[in-house]
Design a protein around this nucleic acid. Structure first.
Lengths: 345, 345
DNA sequence: CTGAAAGCGCTTACAG
DNA sequence: CTGAAAGCGCTTACAG
């Protein structure tokens, strides 16, 4: 290993360099690295040898430009530090990786304006598709991108846009199920913990849940916070438990808030779960399985979402009009919900 | 909003299209979108108008090719679902975003071979730099990339490679501090919970901790698991607490394991924290602040790491030889450690 | 200030 | 199977 005199001054070898050294044309070099090649074994051998020597790496940017086909996929994400988002992105990037796709990730935060700008930026990269995991980019901006020819895949956003692939979860079935779980557990005073600013998917959960609950003659107490964090969950529980009608069942719109609810119910109010209070979450983040929470919840189909997104990138699905995919969120029974009489799987 | 007849068939407008419509040369179009332009107000106006009409977006791939300068930054990450990694990536991508950089993220998992392949792939994108957040890519592979002219920034990896920018944490000071915390708390039987496969940064924490502890005449009990997960933390606590010399102080190499330790110590062994047992973690993940854990730990300087990484991307720092940056991890006092007599901040 | 021309690194019909 | 040539979309000296 000899020391290098300069740092970063090395010019990467180009196909032309390789051609020169191998004594062939640049076309032949290019063919050697193209899958459906037609190169003689001899030529290929020479090219490979020269490439090795020069450490040649095909410049994918140039290839993309020339092939008029772009490989990268843009992913718009926000709140990456939160378990649900991180987990989803983890699945998605590994699936993309397996499919030989590169992921350009754009962290848009919660601000709609910034998110719009980021979405627009996407166009500059001529990505194969833009996958939107965040609720932040406004529907109008998404529509604009689509109109400009950008392929868009929306994950867990209930807005219904034309020419967009929607991957979402069947909240109706899940919420019908959720209501039954509370009823079988014997809960009669039920609260819903949600957020004031409602993204489409939160909205869907909330609406479906209250709808099914009302159908059973129960009016839920609805508490809405500023965010969907652990701390907000704690606030919710304090308000609810100190209120006029302390609930015996609480549905949290996401697991993160449910964790806050659990800790507060136990530690600040001395409640036993599920004896005194049943709590149900949504997402099945890693923490839900921790012994300190053992939260009964619904599992986001993380792997299927990722797989579906990757599948809809293939050329064949390009021709058929975007078909919406609805995945199901399965209940995960753990310790914060009394099983009741006729538990349904 | 008129409906579009086709999906995805739209050809994005090129500078040539804009030039045609605006009645100027492609050079002028290009200049209009270049920062140090020299275009007449009149020409610029025409170009802008035409661009608007055609929804022109500069093709950054082509620009990069032409400018011989690449904007994207590659980030090699693994275990994205774990809080530490997610949090770091969150900070990094937002900082990059602010600096007008695009992040190509490659999720490499734990397999060194796959990680090597991914690192090599990086070269195909002629990225401005590759930021390695994962312990997976072997040092040799990193060195190879550097030798091929790729700029590499290593985060929290203690291996010392030439011509590489290292951003790391001062584990020595932190661990000296950690040992003092245990001593002041009155702990005398101290265990260290770590992992069998040791990445450089874990190794550094482990070595420094045991070194300082031995200097105080205490030999730590070392327990090593297969991973650094919550579940492994649980295993550790079971083994340690059921062992011959149950510790009264446990240092966990990361917070995730510490959370598992806490739940098991409390729920399975009925221990009170910090009265019966002191637990110290490292990373300061979000969960450490949750009421159910309230874990005393050391905070990774997430924001500083991100900022430093972004700063070292600027052209001026390109000329000076890579200078290693060492950041400090501050102790975060919470409830799992007895404060003792002379608490030191 | 502006346009014609060459070049960035690659791919792909088109002839041979 | 192979090479010369044109083209992908952009930038940037070079003349004017």
């Amino acid at each position: 290993m000899k020391a290098r005199p300069y740092l970063g001054n090395i010019q990467a070898a180009s196909a032309a360099d390789v051609a020169r050294l191998a004594g062939v044309s640049r076309s032949t070099v290019s063919r050697t690295f193209t899958d459906g090649a037609s190169v003689s074994a001899d030529a290929r051998e020479k090219v490979l040898r020269a490439s090795e020597e020069l450490h040649y790496h095909v410049n994918f940017l140039a290839r993309g430009l020339s092939k008029q086909e772009s490989r990268p996929v843009c992913i718009l994400v926000s709140n990456l530090h939160k378990p649900y988002h991180a987990q989803l992105l983890d699945h998605l990037t590994t699936a993309l990786q397996l499919a030989q796709r590169i992921s350009i990730i754009i962290n848009v935060g919660d601000d709609p304006a910034a998110a719009s700008a980021a979405l627009e930026q996407t166009l500059n990269y001529r990505a194969a598709a833009t996958i939107v995991l965040s609720g932040a980019p406004p529907a109008l901006m998404v529509r604009r991108c689509v109109e400009l020819g950008q392929r868009v895949i929306l994950v867990n956003r209930a807005d219904d846009l034309p020419d967009v692939q929607h991957i979402s979860v069947d909240y109706e079935t899940a919420m019908r199920n959720a209501v039954q779980m509370f009823l079988r557990a014997g809960c009669r005073t039920i609260a819903l913990v949600s957020r004031a600013v409602r993204t489409p998917s939160l909205l869907a959960r909330e609406d479906q849940f209250t709808r099914f609950l009302r159908a059973e003659g129960i009016e839920p107490q609805i508490w809405r916070g500023q965010s969907t964090t652990y701390q907000t969950g704690q606030q919710a529980m304090r308000a609810l438990l100190a209120g006029l009608a302390p609930p015996d069942g609480v549905f949290c719109i996401n697991d993160l808030m449910a964790c806050g609810c659990i800790d507060t119910a136990r530690r600040e109010f001395g409640l036993r779960l599920p004896e005194d209070l049943c709590i149900l979450g949504f997402d099945d983040i890693a923490q839900a399985a921790w012994a300190g929470y053992d939260l009964t919840t619904f599992a986001q189909p993380y792997a299927e979402i990722a797989q579906t997104a990757v599948n809809s990138l293939t050329p064949q699905s390009e021709t058929m009009s975007a078909r919406d995919i609805v995945l199901t969120a399965r209940p995960i029974w753990r310790g914060t919900m009394r099983a009741g009489t006729a538990r349904k799987t």
